[in-house]
Nucleic acid binder design. Structure first.
Lengths: 205, 205
DNA sequence: AATTGTGAATTGATTCACAGCT
DNA sequence: AGCTGTGAATCAATTCACAATT
């Protein structure tokens, strides 16, 4: 696995290409040029081609890419052609909104359980069980969950992250406004809403 | 304003330093070295120092940085020492969760109004008015709003973005899973939850 | 003695330019 | 003729190494 020297950003863009391809598929387009796909994804065509060559050769010179096959190849590369179980920890405002947000499922992720210190009765519209934090470790081990969404307050984020990792979680999508300290074989993507806003405010005159 | 050749990522990190400084302030620490602050922010000390020099010299050699003054300098640079009004468009699951999420206010942002095609009666716990999309343009102009949070479905994202920009919005925090096409004097930060998850799934073995 | 600030070196990502297929 | 794939060139960001300062 030469996963190590492929730019992180290329992997991100792969997801974006994937989404554009899906849209093309819906519109019954079956072939697309790097030029056209790149435009839809908001990047240069050379970048798209370079991104793809990290993983192999998927196009036909003179013609372009087959939408179906490129899409399934990218799916394979991203490792989500099978449904991936995910747990969510911290059922506050944001946490419960994410639980209700169905968008993950069609992208290949299934939130199989949510955990909270106060395991409130799940809302009528929720099918996902909200369980006590104390049962998290065994649940993760039993269901071999590798991914987690972290929506707890900043003060407990590190502690919960440690527990997740100890139980076997390898990737965390972190919404808590904290820098998590994790072993190097664990990946964290942080989404910090305040930081995003602050960043924007720099650019307005 | 030499805003143009300062790495975007440096600006992001500024926000993170800011948060760490805030924490130090609470703990009554009044001086910090680049080494210590960098560690808290999860970066190398040279990077922190380089980031800061884009804006000036704020430290004392042999000693470090004054927490208070560095924090207020960064606040100035990021342009949010005054309260910044923000509108939110699209009061679905995610949108209403963000409305309830109070975290923005203490970072200097105030969500002054929310808009939706179907202006549902605002929940009992919400003080923010939820208005009809048709009133958005005049509201934004009247209140001179420069920033918006976009939480509408992908299908209407571009259209709503156009309307926001036409009304005078200069920065958009976009949660819709779409690539927005905007004029170059408008900044967009996109948070795409599915892309973040997909990206993580690449890294788990 | 400690720690910042910064030019130079390095590493990494993007874009160019064109060779190679279909 | 058209479009991909890719080594080379360029551009950008990070890290190093150390001079400057308190």
């Amino acid at each position: 696995m030469p996963r190590i020297d492929i730019p992180r950003k290329s992997i991100y863009r792969l997801s974006i290409y994937q989404r554009c391809l899906q849209r093309l598929k819906v519109n019954h387009v079956d072939t697309v040029s790097s030029e056209a796909l790149a435009k839809a994804a908001g990047v240069k065509s050379t970048q798209l081609r370079k991104d793809l060559t990290y993983f192999g050769q998927f196009g036909t010179r003179g013609l372009g890419y087959n939408v179906d096959s490129l899409s399934s190849t990218i799916g394979e590369v991203l490792g989500h052609n099978r449904l991936q179980p995910v747990v969510l920890v911290g059922v506050g405002n944001l946490g419960s909104a994410l639980l209700r947000y169905g968008g993950f499922r069609k992208e290949g992720f299934e939130v199989v359980a949510a955990f909270d210190i106060a395991p409130k009765p799940q809302g009528r519209d929720l099918t996902i069980p909200i369980l006590a934090l104390t049962t998290m470790d065994s649940f993760i081990k039993e269901h071999q969950v590798k991914m987690a969404i972290l929506t707890v307050p900043a003060t407990s984020a590190q502690e919960v992250a440690n527990a997740l990792i100890k139980a076997g979680v390898q990737a965390i999508l972190n919404f808590s406004p904290t820098v998590l300290d994790v072993p190097e074989d664990v990946v964290v993507n942080s989404v910090d809403l305040a930081v995003e806003l602050e960043n924007l405010s720099y650019f307005i005159r």
